[in-house]
Amino acid sequence: MNTMMQTRSAKRIIDWAIIACMMLLAIGMLLPFLWLFSMSFRSVSDAYKMPPSFLPPSLDLTNYWAVLNSKVPFIRIYANSVMIAVVVTIGQLITCSLAAFAFSRLKFRGRDAMFFILLVGLMFPAQVTILPIYLGYARTGLVNQPMGLALMYLTSSFGVFLMRQFMVSQPKALEEAALMDGAGYIKIFWRISLPQLRPALSALGIITFTQTWNYYFQAKVLLGKQDQMTLPLAMDVLRGYLGAGNLSVVMAAMSLSILPVVLLFLIAQKFVIEGITMSGIKN
C-alpha cells in the first residue's frame, strides 16, 4: 500500500513537471503574436531597435492612424474581407444545413451516391479548380469582384459532412412526432431540427468565417486591384508600400486584421474545438 502511495505521488510530480514544460512551450508559441502586437505600439523610428518588445511599450495609437491614412485603402479592404466572410458564412449555414437534413433525415433515390460524390470534393485542391473558374469569371465580369470570391464558396463538402455527422448523432423522436401530427418536412426542418443543431451551426459558422477570412491563393488569382482586395493580400502590399522602415505600421495593420478571428476564438473556443474534433475523429 505504501509503495502504491509513493508511485502515486511520484506520478503527480511527473505530471506537474510536464505541465510546467508545456507552460513554457505554450508561451513560446504565443511569442510571435506578443511581438507583433507590441511592435504595433512602437514609434516608427524605434521599430528596429533591439531588444524587441513582447509587451506594448506604450498605448500610442499613431501607427493605427497611419494605417487608416495610408495610400492603401485599408478600410475599403477591411470591408471587403468582412463582406465576403459574412456572405460565405451565412450562405454555408443555409446550404449545408439544408443538404445535411436531406442526407440524414430523408429518403430519396440517389441520395447515398450524391453524398459520396460530394465527399470526393474534400480531396480536390483549389489549384485544380481555379483555372476554369478564372476563365469563366473573366468571361462574365466576375474577376476583380469580391462577390465573385464569395460566390464560389457558398457551399462546401466539409460543411455538409460536418452538419450531417452531427445530425446523425441526434435523436429523431421529436421530428417523428411532428410528422405524425401532420407537419411538413420544411416546417420540421425549420422548427425542430435547426434549433437542435445550434452547436453544430456555431462550429461551422466560426470555422467557415475563419477560413474565408484567411483565403489567399484564390484571392490572389481572382482579385488584383487594391480596391477589391482582401486583408491577407493587402498585408503584403502594405509591407512593400511602406518600405522597410515602417515595420510598426505593418504590425498595426496586422493587429487589426487578426482581431475578428482572435475574438471569435476567445469567445467560442469550445465550439471550434468540438467542431474540429467531430469532423476529424468520426471520419
Binding site: A99, A102, F103, K107, M114, L118, G121, M152, F189
Partner: peptide, 24 residues
C-alpha cells in the same frame, strides 16, 4: 420526402457542380 430531399440538396448540388466538379 423525395421532393423535399431534392429541393434541399439543390442549392448545394448546383454550386458544387458549378464550382467543383465542372472545373475539375
Amino acid at each position: 420526402q423525395a421532393r423535399t430531399g431534392y429541393l434541399f440538396v439543390l442549392p448545394t448540388a448546383v454550386l458544387y457542380l458549378t464550382f467543383v466538379l465542372a472545373p475539375v
